[in-house]
Each structure stands twice: as C-alpha cells, then as structure tokens.
Design a protein around this nucleic acid. Sequence first.
RNA 1: GGCCGCGUACCCAAGUGGCCUAAGGGAACGGAUUGCAAAUCCGUGAUUCGUGGGUUCAAAUCCCACCGCGGCCUCCA
Length: 499
Amino acid sequence: MTMRLYNTLTKSIENFSPIAPDGTVTFYSCGPTVYDDAHIGNFRSFLNADILRRALQLHGFRVKHVMNITDVGHMTEDDAADGGGEDKMAVAGRRIAEAKKSGKLPAGAEIDATDPYAIASFYADRFLEDARHLGLQVAIEERTHPELMPRPTRCVPQMIALVEQLIARGHAYVAKDGVVYFSVESFSAYGRLSGNTLDKLREGEGGRISAQHQAVKRHPADFMLWKPDPTHLMRWPSPWGEGYPGWHLECSAMARMLLGDEIDLHSGGEDNIFPHHECEVAQSCCASGRPAFARMWFHTRHLQVEGEKMSKSKGNFFTARDLFAKGVTPAALRLELVRTHYRTNSNFTLQGLRDCQRMIDRWASARTSLAARSAGTGAGPFQRALIEFKEALADDLNVARAIAALNTAIAEDASGDPIAELAALDAMNSVLGVFERNEALQSAAADDLATKVEALLERRRAARAAKDWAESDRVRDELTALGVRIKDGPQGTTWERAV
RNA sequence: GGCCGCGUACCCAAGUGGCCUAAGGGAACGGAUUGCAAAUCCGUGAUUCGUGGGUUCAAAUCCCACCGCGGCCUCCA
C-alpha cells in the first residue's frame, strides 16, 4: 500500500517513497523553542508529526526522526532580516525572576534567572517530560539517542561552516554593518514553498521590515545568517566576530549534520512555512548545490480552543501540564490533539477531551476482554479493521477515518483468532499510542485527593452495608463536589476525576 | 491590500460527482442493569450538507455570488 501525503511544496497529494533504497525515511521536525512551557497548540503540531512517523512505521518503513530543541534565544521581533527586539531567553529570565519574587515559581525551578543556558535547559527538560507523557516517540528515543533531538547551542560550528560555504558559493555576503545576509536573489526558487516570491513580497503589505537595516542589504528580503554582537546574551566566536546565528540557520545545519543534504520529510506548524522553511530551503539548497532539500513538506494547521484563537488574554490558553494537573490523562489529550485531520484547523474543547477519554476507555476494555478470550480462528473484526485503518492512514493521514474503523470493529461481535485479533488491535495502537498512557499523572495534589476519596468511599461502603441510602447519597454528593465520579462494580467501587 | 483554507445533526468529525434517503465518537432520549444513580450493554438520531443561483441524466461533492469563520504575508506549532 502506498502512503499518499499532501506536500506543501507542490500543493498536491503525492505518493511517498523514501530516497534511501533500503526504505529508511529521513524525517526532520521543527521542535519547540524552550523559553516557556509548550502549549497544546505546539503539541498538536509535534503529535501530528509523531502520528505520521508511526504511520510510516506501521506501513513497514524504518524512520530516522530528528526534532530540534531550540535553546538559542532568538529575538522577539526577529523578522526575515534583522534580529531586532529582545532576546526570548531574556524575556523568560525576567518572567522567572518575577515569579520568584511573588513566590509563584514552578516546582523545582531553582534556576538562575540571569543564565540563559539554565533557563533553556530547565524548559527543555520540562518539554521532554511532557512530550514523553504524550507519547512523542522521538522524545522517548532521545533517552538512548540524544543526538535525535539536537540543540543549536551545541551545533554552532556546523552553522558557521554552512555560512562559510554560502559565502564561498556567492549566496551570502557580509554587509556594511558586519552582519552576514543570505542573498535571496541568488536563489531563483525562493518563494516556491510559501508562494511568497520576491515580486509578491515587494507588492505585499510590507512596511514591517525596519527601515534601518534596509540600506545595507541588497534586497529587502535578504535574511540574517550571522549577527556579530558582543553584547548578546548567548554568543560565540566566528569569522565575522563574536555574535549569534540567524534563526533559520539551525535547522538547515542540524538536518544536514544528522540526516544529510537531502531528506524525505520535513514537518512544522503552518506558521513555519514562511519565512522559516522558505529560508531553510534556500540555505540548504544553496549550500549543497542540490535542487531539493526536503522532498515533502508536512504542515499542521493551527489549533483553536472552544472555537477561538488560543491566547493568554482570552483565558483559553493551556499547556499540557496544566491539563495533566487537572487529571486529564495523556492518552485523552493525545487523541484530542490528533483526531482532526492535520490540514484543517482543529477545535480543542473540554467536551472533546471527555469524548476522547470515553473512546479510549472503551478500546481499553475491548482489549481486556480480547486478551481474556481463548476460542476462535481466522480473521475477526480487528484484523479487518486494521486493513481499513492502514488504508485510512495511507490516505494523507486520515486519522478520523482510521479511528472510525477501530470503533466499528469494537461494535462488532467478537470472532477470529484471539491472538491475531489482539495483535491487530495493538498494531492500531502503535499509531494511536493511547493504551500505555491512559492513567492520570501522579502529583502531590492528586495523592491528597486520593486520601480524601478513599476515606469517603469507606464511609459510603459502611452506609450502603447498613442500607442507609440517605447517608450513602450524601457521601456521593460530597464526592461529586470534589470532582470525583464513582463507578460501582462487582469488584467494589472505583473512581476517577471528572474532567 | 495580496495570497490561501474552511462552513456537514446539540458538540467533535469523515465523506470532494452516482454504492450518500451522509461514516465514526460524544451528548440527548427510550430500554436493560442499579436501593437510586454513575459506569456498562442494547436501541433511537441529519430526506439533508452556511445562503441563493447555475452546470449535469446525477452535486454535500463542480462553477458563480453572498454571508460567516480562520490562516499566511510579522515572533509564533
């Protein structure tokens, strides 16, 4: 079965086949910048890349997946050219210093707010923790293969080498202000990925590129590769003076270092298309002399929350850990973030999170009864569903259709060889990745709640034994008020936090 | 201002010319179960696909207009 995927570069759905004859897929994903906790919108993008990677694996490919963790403090107003504004790490540092003062520092954050490396490392660790909870396979692999999640601060020599090569080939120049710029006019395919060709850029709204740098550049869209700045927070020696790299440079350098000059797949959020990925293409192609950098570009559309753009001011802004702290299982969050096709704007809702949890619980109980079954031969509903599941994923990653296939199997009567049926269900889960993370995360608050709940359940058990229904119902109301939902079963009462 | 995408039941969401009197999940409702609930199981659910035109033997699917929402062009996943 051939995987078909939408390629941003050609704006069409194409058959996927890797460059390497042995079928190994080279896949680079733009990861987070670690100056704050990743929010659920970030994770929608990262998880869709993860689903793609797992779907490829289900289809028999070996995947070498790299995702960077950007620990350089790029500028808050860093536009295509200039590197203006404030360093993000400095902003994060100030935020941490303020939090320290007001005693609202996140747990375990004994960090020096003036040390950008400490800030980056603090948030990188938190990102990896969240990512592993959510089943981001590359983050799980990172434990044994740290090179799969490279940090730009450790790859500066490779970036410098790339800039030197671009200068040598006539694609970059040192301007009068000492800054090294990429010359967009030297790359005729500039604009092909995003549609922002040079003539259109000139026609566009424009006026955003600050005038002070324009004078020294050959073309207004020329973007910075290296900026000498002896006062910058993070800086490295270079042939152009002590300074820092441009923000597009890292991905080109690291993809090349780890995956080669030409790669199969490159992913990111839709906002990365321009300027970030456009500039990456230009840098990589011009450095390698090849016509292509990534053969296929995979972009995930943005997430909305309760029908609105997510923003801190609207109060609809969630990080993964915010939700985990409320008792949301990583499995439910994972499913809610990937169940909508990656090329449509998805709408994250609390109701949707509950829907996902119920679906996963039903799958899990189906798995339990399947594992307990011994009789049956041949193909049953799950083996049939797996075929449809794989076809749906091969169809430009149609996750919703794949999930429907699984749901349909669950509604059918149990039949077929139980071992093969279980294997089929687990194969589907190898992409969905929910069974192994369907438990709420532990925390001090959760432990505290558990103690209270256990005491109340004991009171209720006693009341029920005495047929004191009034007392029993009173206790149940108390539990409900605590946000707890109870389930009475033959083996006694279980409970969970209602989300 | 330029470029682009979307609008399917109460909610999420698949389907992009005939197998669609529209998949799947949740909610709701009815039943089984329960001390009563919750959970679970069974059943019910859009003659209709933002609105108005058009093309076609045939449209949710193609075209046009309008309304609404969103994205990129600028740091952002």
